[in-house]
Design a protein around this nucleic acid. Structure first.
Length: 769
DNA sequence: TCACAAATTTTTTTT
DNA sequence: AAATTTGTGA
């Protein structure tokens, strides 16, 4: 056993300073790869070792469950290593999990039932649609997703319907109406959405000082990781909880703030010193993770941002290999290239599968990669993405569970009332819903009433009664059986699996497999939690812990994920695919009204690059299918921002085969010779960026290749919200599009509120960026 | 009421 | 290209 002293000697002076600053407010500005987790781990161990706190008096908040698990594991391991006996468990979790835990105990004070359900985004959307129907709002003119976004935004700002009422700039009248009604319906359904978990906890603290006080006293020490990505409500929660002891340690890096679209407010970290004038600030600037080359390139890229403190990351690591920027013809070749590279590095024997990671901007990009990994028999796992529990059959079963636990859950009720089909159609459901609305009651209750009062036709009455009896039976079983047994009861009583087998749907086998996998997951959960493994806690975990399926034990695999999920992780070899304008940076960042949207994309690039320890490869494709249509976009501007001495450009594109493709896509008049990459030598350096133009849409020159790329389908592509200029009407905004390709018609609202419809191909519309 | 066909929309990013 | 919503006829 080593002593804590010996171990902590390995920390550098700043790290040590952070570790030794235990009381009072502390801001740790931790650059990428600067050993942040290590510092937090040591600091926590130090708190316990010094006898300042018991584990259960420390609250550590992380951004993802993955990070929480990792940190908890590392702290436990360290404490074991230095031989500190630990009684009690640390509270290491996400804001949402902590809040769910707190609410489970106190939510009765807010007049909810303790068995409240949690609505994920799709449940939330169903509820919003339901509210819209009730209010007679047309989805065509008012997309439900818009209300969802506004409601969630209000909640992260801690604004109730009443609060937004007089703030028309925050929410228009219709949205306010929807929000109010939505809140009412959620309350009646005894359910909380993600935003509610935080907001209701905050309100609980506000309305019940005694409850707040108990938590303030309990948590003597607070740590918040990824502080740059906290939003308003999270900020308020932190301030509130820390108010008593003021032992608040926040850690973050403004260059890694990538969640502003979720309300993350970078000023929280930038103004920490204003909130706590006596705060100690420690900067961790030495990177231990990556090669000099990678650090140099990443630093150069991030320097293009204005929204940052000028901090300098440095490393004493080796120069390492150059970053490779690889051009391929399309996303399939791109995927094949990645797979080939992994195979060849594996053959050299320096790496193992688990050393590789592939990052992409959008989840949709994983499909092609996955295909190629399968073809070549390389083990892989995808983190995030289409989550297991989002699959139809899993959601169905979960809906049954939710409904059994919380009969007021109308979204769950509507989901399962005719699943598997039992002859209860839309008419019946609508009728029940009508009754429910009239009575201000839940649908289960209303359905029972309708059956008793013969409000439905005989056939519907009979079927509905049967369904209600089924639910009743399940409710009793839930009480008497274990979780696993209860799960089986659901499948049996609803004949779910049997019905799947009967219908000759080609997906049926996969679905049944998923249900079996779910069975295992439930069993495992039960085993792990023991007494605590209740139906409520299981559903809570299902809703909040989305990456539950990445625990493929022992298997060494390549990991794939979005750039967002990659934050906080590190891998010896990293590939970032799809380095193209419109994809990464996202097309929305370029023409969004927010001038800082591009900076956030750049931070995302910075995050991705700094995950790599030894080797970093960036790939881009000349053409890529987007929504089933070919799109050609120039290489990402971020590639251009990297110092050329750090990057080696490679291409597979000097063959004539592609020239013809580019030629064809360009509409027949362009040639490819201009870029002059004939022959196989050195690829003519990298493809000349000038040939692509600076961005996807700017300044279409006469350049032949530029035409070939910029004039492709992308050029005539107008989307909702886009700002455009018409030669005679002036500037306006696209608010509707119909048709596609040459038939695309766009409706545009001009400054004076007039609306004109154009055939995009003929109208001389110009995009304004 | 339901199965199937047709039309329409979807892609940022996550708790 | 895939998923979801809407329409249609039995």
């Amino acid at each position: 056993m080593k002593s804590f002293e010996t171990l902590s000697r390995s920390l550098n002076p700043s790290q040590r300073e952070a570790m030794e600053t235990l009381s009072g407010p502390l801001l740790i500005l931790a650059g990428a790869g600067s050993g942040k987790t290590r510092v937090l781990t040591y600091r926590t161990a130090n708190l316990i070792a010094q006898g300042l706190a018991n584990p259960e008096e420390i609250l550590a908040v992380t951004f993802t469950n993955k990070a929480a698990r990792e940190m908890e594991g590392r702290i436990a391991a360290l404490l074991r290593e230095i031989g500190i006996p630990v009684h009690g468990r640390l509270w290491v979790s996400t804001f949402h999990s902590i809040c769910a835990r707190i609410l489970r105990e106190h939510i009765h004070l807010l007049d909810y039932q303790p068995f409240f359900g949690i609505y994920d985004s799709s449940d939330q959307l169903s509820m919003i649609k339901r509210v819209m129907t009730a209010l007679g709002i047309d989805e065509k003119t008012h997309p439900a997703k818009g209300f969802q976004a506004r409601i969630n935004a209000a909640k992260t700002e801690a604004l109730s319907p009443d609060d937004v009422k007089d703030r028309r700039h925050v929410m228009d009248e219709v949205s306010h109406k929807v929000y109010s009604r939505y809140e009412g319906e959620m309350k009646r359904a005894n359910s909380l959405d993600f935003g509610d978990l935080l907001l209701k906890t905050y309100l609980l603290f506000k309305d019940y000082p005694a409850v707040l006080e108990s938590y303030q006293s309990k948590f003597k020490f607070l740590m918040v990781d990824e502080y740059q990505d906290t939003n308003r409500i999270q900020y308020l929660l932190v301030q509130t909880l820390a108010a008593k002891h003021r032992n608040l340690c926040v850690v973050g890096d403004e260059d890694q703030s990538i969640y502003s679209w979720r309300g993350a407010d970078i000023t929280n970290i930038l103004s920490f010193e204003r909130d706590f004038p006596d705060a100690k600030v420690v900067k961790l600037e030495q990177n231990y993770r990556s090669t000099k080359t990678i650090i140099r390139a990443a630093t150069k890229v991030i320097k293009n941002n204005t929204q940052r403190k000028d901090k300098t990351l440095f490393t004493e690591n080796d120069d390492g290999d150059p970053i490779v920027a690889r051009e391929e013809s399309n996303e399939y070749d791109e995927a094949r290239y990645v797979v080939r590279e992994i195979e060849s590095l594996m053959n050299e024997g320096d790496f193992d599968y688990e050393d590789f990671a592939v990052f992409y901007r959008t989840n949709a990009q994983s499909r092609v990669l996955e295909e190629q990994f399968r073809v070549r028999g390389i083990p892989y796992k995808i983190v995030g993405g289409m989550k297991f529990y989002e699959r139809m059959e899993i959601k169905d079963v979960i809906a049954y569970m939710k409904l059994v636990l919380n009969p007021a859950d109308d979204v769950a009720f509507k989901r399962v009332i005719n699943v598997p089909t039992r002859g209860i159609g839309k008419a019946t459901v609508d009728r029940i819903e009508e009754i429910a609305a009239a009575k201000g009651a839940g649908m289960v209750e209303s359905a029972a009433w309708a059956v008793d009062h013969r409000e439905l036709n005989p056939a519907a009455t009979r079927k509905t009664r049967e369904f209600l009896l089924l639910l009743q039976g399940l409710r009793e079983k839930a009480r008497a059986l274990t979780l696993t047994e209860f799960y089986h009861a659901i499948l049996d009583d609803t004949s779910y699996v049997r019905r799947l087998k009967d219908e000759d749907n080609p997906d049926a086998d996969g679905r049944i497999e998923n249900l079996e996998e779910f069975d295992n997951a439930i069993a495992k959960f039960e085993e792990e939690r023991g007494e605590e493994g209740t139906l409520q806690s299981f559903l809570e975990e299902m809703a909040l812990v989305q990456d539950a399926d990445d625990v493929e034990e022992g298997q060494k695999t390549v990991t794939m994920m979005t750039l967002h999920i990659s934050k906080g992780l590190e891998y010896p070899v990293v590939f970032i695919v799809g380095m193209e304008e419109s994809l990464f940076p996202s097309g929305r960042a370029a023409d969004d009204g927010d001038p800082f949207a591009m900076e956030e994309e750049r931070r995302l690039c910075y995050v991705g690059m700094t995950r790599a320890e030894k080797k970093l490869t960036l790939t881009y494709a000349r053409a890529r299918k987007v929504w089933g249509a070919d799109q050609m976009n120039p290489p990402s501007r971020f590639l251009k921002e990297m110092p050329s001495e750090c990057v080696r450009f490679e291409t597979s594109m000097s063959r004539p085969r592609f020239m013809r493709a580019a030629y064809a896509a360009g509409g027949g008049k362009a040639g490819y010779s201009k870029s002059g990459t004939s022959g196989g030598d050195a690829f003519g350096g990298m493809p000349n960026y000038e040939d692509f133009g600076d961005g996807p849409f700017d300044d279409p020159s006469d350049d032949a290749l530029s035409d070939a790329f910029d004039g492709a389908p992308t050029g005539g592509d107008f989307k909702k919200g886009m700002k455009v200029r018409h030669p005679s009407y002036g500037a306006g905004t696209v608010f509707q599009t119909e048709g596609s390709g040459p038939d695309l018609k766009v409706s545009i609202v001009f400054g004076d509120n007039t609306v004109k419809k154009f055939v995009a191909k003929y109208a001389r519309l110009e995009r304004i960026t």
